[in-house]
Design a protein around this nucleic acid. Structure first.
Lengths: 219, 219
DNA sequence: ACGTTGAGATTGCCG
DNA sequence: CGGCAATGTCAACGT
């Protein structure tokens, strides 16, 4: 990884055009072949960048990165303020917990906690427009499509409606119910969902973990 | 801006939990109060970070960042490999062109180039579920809702359908036409749009610029 | 390679 | 501050 601090001006031409007037900035060149230009603001987002795979050529006063799509990032270097090379080696990587995958696993393990009589048929039930998070059956034998989100918004409801429409084409499944399950559901999403006959359920991750352990009960 | 290269281990606890095992990494502390931990991969995305506003406290072997929401980022420093402070000053900022806003402005200036007889009523016409990009009238006096995208996808069509449904509740506007205008429209979006009676138009940014100049004509 | 979806999305706008 | 939509969204995963 190379940490180059330089007075520079930058031009990006690709999906859009972007220009940075001359100023001192950090140019971060990683071992993965990426290049990113940071100012002292904008938090973790660089002002400009190029993601790998791209080819970087460097001359006296100019660094140019180009990718396969023909996008170019051109850095004109006026003055080098610092230039450090550091060797980090491979990173052991990031371990995450609490993302949608975990939420889905917890809910899948106890769909009956959402509504009495629910039984899981399949996780990631495939349709030709993408997988339904959970496909279940209710106590009356009706199919129930469940979409799981951390935050329930209108786009999530529409995603679910697309799936329901698909599932309803299968006589073995139609007519299906649809449920949006999320840690929080935004008011407008709830209104929209209910206008389309989509049930909304908010769940608490900690309570679900408890249910999964068998140490807590909702009922 | 401080460039700290250190053998470290990191723990984030907030919207999710995340852990980084001990390894050498770049810890980037910006003047805006942000902190980001980079490995030599993942392009411009840090492994962990904290965006301002947050309070950062540093002791001998530990850096802890906390924000108002109670999220914490804890960095345990085992060994400092490099530690550089650089002063960049304020950045003149990024100038962009070719984003949706410009596309919208160009199209708004010449809606008649999309379909003969179209006239602009308003840009960003407000509804209670969000603004319609362009509201127009066609030659027969019918209202036309236009959604503009760089890339036309299914979600864009659905956004437009929500608006049309909303506009159709207003007797002064109903029944409305709907048009998706984009630089490129994905095949699935086109099929879906036409099944819902939404017109699709692909436009070329350069041609639009020419029209705006008056130096080119589509007809 | 393409399509779909998730993301600690972030960021900016407007009410 | 909350809701909404754009982002050069990026990145992961499945076909």
């Amino acid at each position: 990884m190379r940490l180059l601090v330089a007075d520079c001006e930058v031009e990006y031409s690709g999906r859009l055009g972007a220009r940075l007037a001359r100023a001192p900035r950090l140019i971060l060149m990683k071992a993965d072949g990426s290049i990113a230009i940071h100012s002292d603001a904008k938090a973790y987002k660089p002002l400009n960048w190029m993601t790998p795979p791209c080819t970087i050529t460097e001359q006296e006063t100019e660094i140019v990165a180009t990718n396969r799509a023909g996008e170019t990032l051109r850095i004109r270097v006026f003055d080098v303020l610092a230039d450090h090379e550091v060797v980090l080696g491979e990173d052991p990587g990031l371990e995450k917990e609490g993302v949608e995958a975990e939420l889905q696993a917890l809910i899948a393990a106890r769909v009956a906690a959402l509504r009495d009589g629910l039984e899981l048929v399949r996780r990631e039930y495939p349709t030709d427009i993408g997988p339904v998070d959970l496909l279940c059956r209710d106590g009356e034998g009706r199919s129930v499509a469940i979409e799981i989100k951390r935050v329930g918004e209108i786009t999530g409801v529409e995603q679910l409606l697309r799936y329901r429409e698909r599932l309803d084409r299968d006589p073995a499944l139609a007519p299906t119910r649809a449920m949006l399950v999320a840690q929080t559901i935004k008011p407008q999403a709830r209104v929209f969902a209910e206008s389309r006959d989509v049930e909304c359920i908010e769940v608490d991750l900690d309570v679900l973990r408890g249910i999964d352990d068998g140490s807590l009960r909702l009922f």
